[in-house]
Structures are given as C-alpha cells and as structure tokens.
Design a protein around this nucleic acid. Structure first.
Length: 481
RNA sequence: CGGGGUGUAGCGCAGUUGGUAGCGCGCUUGCUUUGGGAGCAAGAUGCCGGGUGUUCGAGUCACCUCACUCCGACCA
C-alpha cells in the first residue's frame, strides 16, 4: 500500500468511507464524463477521451504489428441475422436495443443496434471467403456498441460503450486457437506495460463463456476494494459460427471446409480499471503511458519577470523530447493548481518559481507518492522521462502488492468465508472439480464467483473446495464488477 | 428487474402550518496576492427534473413519469 497521504481535495469522498462514491466523485471531478438525459449514456469529456485515444493508439499499433487490419461494420443487425446462431442470440437478446421504425414507417424487419458484431462479420466472411487463399482474415474495428443494461455505472457498465472488437477467421482450429491466445497475450502486455496493471490470464468456466464460444479467455484484474474486474476477453469459436452462417472454403485438397474463428475485445471499461487500480483519495492517478498530460508545469509567482518565459522554454524543451506537457499559466493560485492536477492524475508536476530559476533548477513531484525532488534544468527532459518510468514501475508494484495481499489460498468453503471476513474482498485461489453445481454452490455459500482458471495452473489441494472430490482445476474466485 | 436514497443557480446544500426562493463555493469586473484549493469590493445567474391533479395559491400535498445513486439478481 502506498504511504499515508493527507487528503487535500475535500470534494472527493475517501475510498475507505464509501468506495462507490469515491469512484463516481473521481469520474466527475477529474472531468472524465458528464451524464446525459439518457440513462447509461454518458459524454466522455476531452480529458477522459484523451485517455481512451492514448489507449487506442498503443493497442492499435499492437494489433497492426500482429497483422490485423481495421474495418468498420454497420451499426444495425437485422433480427434474422442475429438469430442465426442459437447460443449467441440467447445470450444477447435480453439486452439489445431495437430499431422498429424508419422515419414514420414501421420496418418490415426490426433491426438491433449491435451489442457485438460477430453476426455482421460472419455475414461478410461468408461473402468474401471462398478459398484457403482467402484465409486468414485478421480484422478489427473500433466502434461503439449498445447493451441495454439495467444498472449502469460510468465506464464500468454503460448502455453504449466504446471498444475494439477483433474478429478473425482461419483455415484451421490450431491457427484460431493460437490467435485467441496471442491476443490474450497482447492484452496482458498492454495492461502491464501501458496501464501498470497486473492481470491474471485465464480461461472462463463453461457457465461463464461468451454466448456462442467454444472457449473464452479473459484477463482479470483486482481493484483497490478487492473486487475483480474483467479487463479483456478473447474467444475461440471453433467452426460453430461458420456452420451457422454457411461460411466455407475450398482447401488445397479441393475439399469444402468450415473455417475457425475468434473474437476479442477491450472497452472503455479499462478507464474504470485504471481509476480503481491506481486512484487514491486525492483523485485519479494515471499511468504515464496513457496520461493525456504526463507533466504539468506550474509556475510560481508567475507575474514576476522571467518566470513565464522560462516556463514556456521548459515546456518547449519537453515537448521536443516527446513528453506530453502542459503549462498552466491561468491566474489560479499555485496551490489550486497542485490540487487540480492531482485530482486529474497527472503523473509528474514541475514547479518552477523565481528561486528555482535563480538556481537553474525546478521541483519535480510525482503524483502517486507526492515525493519532491529538486533537479537541474539542464537535461530536464531526461530527468522527467526517468521519473515517468519510475512512476510506471511504482504503480505496477503497488497494484501487484495490493493484489497479492488480497489473494487468499483456500481449501474449503469455510476457509473462503473466513478469509473474506478476516481480510476483506479479494481473489480466492481454490481447486475445483469442474462440476457446475459446485461452482454455483461456492457462489451461493461464500458470495464469490469463478473468475477464471489461470493459464498458470498450480495444485493448492488435491480435492475440490466444495465437494471434496478430486480437483481438476485451480480457479480464481472473486466478487466481480 | 426488485428494495432503499436523491433531484431547488455551474457545484454542494437550506427552504418551518402551502403564501411567489435563499446560503456557501464557483462565475463576471476591479485592485491586492502567488512555494498546497489567496484577500477585499462590486455584480450576474432559477419554468425548484418533467407531467397531471388538489387548492384562491404548490419548491412544499397526491398520483404518474424521467434521471442519478446505493444494495441485490444479470452482464464487458
């Protein structure tokens, strides 16, 4: 846990007092979102959107580097198309929004606003895939989707949300499975290297699978309050969708074959994950890689001659070095600015006043621990870059520590209940026999559901935590967002 | 979708037995300030979430609706 800090920003509820309120306070006070008059639909404000844009840029680069191309599918899905794959439609039907009219005319067939685009990609693949030479197709799209959620929370569960959805189609199961795993790895790397957020990679149980998938993989992160958040998913579909949508190709052997498919996605929920992984009682704490402003320059006594000139020169120098930097020369007091940018989670603050300029130095303050260091103005860009790296590492370390501190290994249901009562919510590592009845019972008795079966399996006991029969899998259990 | 809470100025709130709306912060202007949310002075800001009723009269009472929020069930 990070060092005790005096709470400076009074308008943010402390997370110990009310975690949910703390979260919504940050979302509003850091100017990430504004509500609209439609439930569950929010304005992502420039500062919030800039975080998303930074994520997009990094992820998009990773997708391109692994051979993917971006496309854009329509927003509407005819009901008949949605219904082609039975499990899929059953999974999504309860939460789709329907368009029933065009202008004043009732539509012959109603259209759903995409909750996800498997069906559209399948329809398209059926048209363009004919030969093994057409495979694989590695497509991705950056769009919004709509799911008519009952309870909504900014970023974590909204009715419309931004995401990327990758949809790929391959000649063989082996290739498709490799793709599923590759993308899970891309997400993991992104979360760790760019969001400073450690995740558990694993496979979902049967009951928790994506509607229509053969297998679903996910990355699970643990939030400050000990609740788990699914941060990304990657699905292997086998040839189920291909069969439902009539996608076939001719192989080298001149035989008609069904191709194998995958899909994978991450959403603006990741912004919620950042808030609840790194944020503190003074507001947001942003990982440097995605922070819209990486360094904020706050001039002190800025009316004095030379101060703003120097601040502008420093800004230009940092910009030139590729650092996202802002100079706040508004006439708010320095103290006000300190609080403001802490609330907004800017990783590094640069204080620059007459005394500093006289000494050819400035004060660097890191947001996550408020540590102050005096550094020379010579080579400042390098000092700032080094700080940003330090911040990233510290954020990751803190998050990992929090997760480890809140991960409990249990052998029986009683141990689970006891661990949760004693230490608060967190991940439970416990063995499972593979029976759905046990999975349900664990949830019923202890309140924690299965999050995933980690790729890195261990044996913490020989028997199922629930029924005592021989165990098949290690499962991470937890309360989820 | 079930159970609670809340909607009054940009934000946070007060508003008594029903009588025509107020405080703090913020905002505007000016001066003084500037190393942790500065001070003084003068200003501006409201269809009291929306609708329907009761009433001479509704922010206040009743009913309906919408949104936010929390706790469950379902989900990225």
């Amino acid at each position: 846990m990070m060092a005790e800090q005096k709470k400076m920003v009074e308008d943010i509820t402390s997370m110990e007092e009310d975690f949910a309120k703390w979260y919504t306070d940050i979302v509003k006070k850091a100017e990430l979102i504004e509500y609209t008059s439609v439930k569950g639909c929010m304005v992502i404000r420039p500062y919030g959107y800039a975080i998303w844009e930074n994520m997009q840029k990094i992820l998009d680069g990773m997708f391109k580097a692994t051979g993917h191309e971006n496309v854009c599918m329509p927003m509407f899905i005819p009901e008949s198309l949605l219904q082609k794959e039975k499990d899929h439609v059953e999974g999504f039907a309860p939460e789709v929004a329907w368009v029933t009219h065009g202008g004043n005319e009732k539509l012959e067939e109603r259209l759903c606003v995409r909750p996800t685009s498997e069906t559209l990609f399948c329809e398209h693949y059926a048209n363009i895939v004919h030969s093994h030479r057409d495979l694989p197709k590695l497509y991705n799209q950056w769009v919004s989707v709509v799911r008519w959620e009952k309870t909504t929370r900014p970023f974590l569960r909204s009715r419309e949300f931004l995401w990327q959805e990758g949809h790929t189609i391959h000649a063989t199961a082996k290739e498709a499975i490799e793709e599923t795993e590759r993308m899970l790895g891309v997400y993991t790397k992104f979360c760790e290297d760019s969001l400073a957020m450690p995740v558990i990679q694993g496979k979902k149980t049967e009951s928790d699978k994506f509607a229509g998938a053969v297998s679903t993989y996910a990355i699970e992160a643990l939030m400050h309050d000990g609740k788990a958040l699914q941060a990304g998913t990657s699905h292997y579909f086998g040839d189920g969708f291909a069969k439902a949508f009539g996608i076939q190709y001719q192989s080298k052997e001149n035989k008609l074959e069904y191709p194998h498919q995958t899909s994978w996605g991450v959403t603006t929920r990741l912004i919620g994950a950042i808030i609840m992984t790194h944020g503190d009682n003074n507001g947001l704490v942003l990982p440097p890689a995605v922070a819209p402003i990486q360094a904020i320059i706050i001039p002190v006594a800025q009316h004095k001659p030379g101060v703003l000139d120097k601040a502008n020169a420093v800004k230009a120098e940092l910009e030139k070095a590729g650092i996202r930097v802002k100079l706040d020369d508004s006439d708010n007091s320095p103290g006000w600015k300190f609080s403001e940018y802490e609330m907004k989670g800017v990783p590094v603050r640069i204080e620059l006043g007459p005394r500093d300029i006289e000494n050819n130095q400035c004060v660097l303050v890191t947001r996550h621990n408020r540590e102050k260091t005096f550094v020379s103005l010579d080579g400042l860009a390098d000092s700032v870059k080094a700080k940003l790296c330090e911040v990233h590492d510290a954020l990751y370390r803190n998050a990992l520590e929090n997760r480890e501190r809140r991960t409990y290994t249990c052998k029986t249901l009683d141990e689970i209940t006891e661990a949760l009562e004693k230490n608060g919510d967190g991940f439970i590592k416990a063995m499972w026999c593979g029976d759905e009845a046990c999975e349900d019972k664990v949830k019923e008795v202890t309140g924690v559901g299965s999050r995933c079966m980690p790729l890195e399996q261990e044996v913490v006991s020989d028997t199922c935590v629930c029924c005592g029969k021989p165990a098949k899998h290690l499962v991470y259990w937890g309360k989820a967002y």
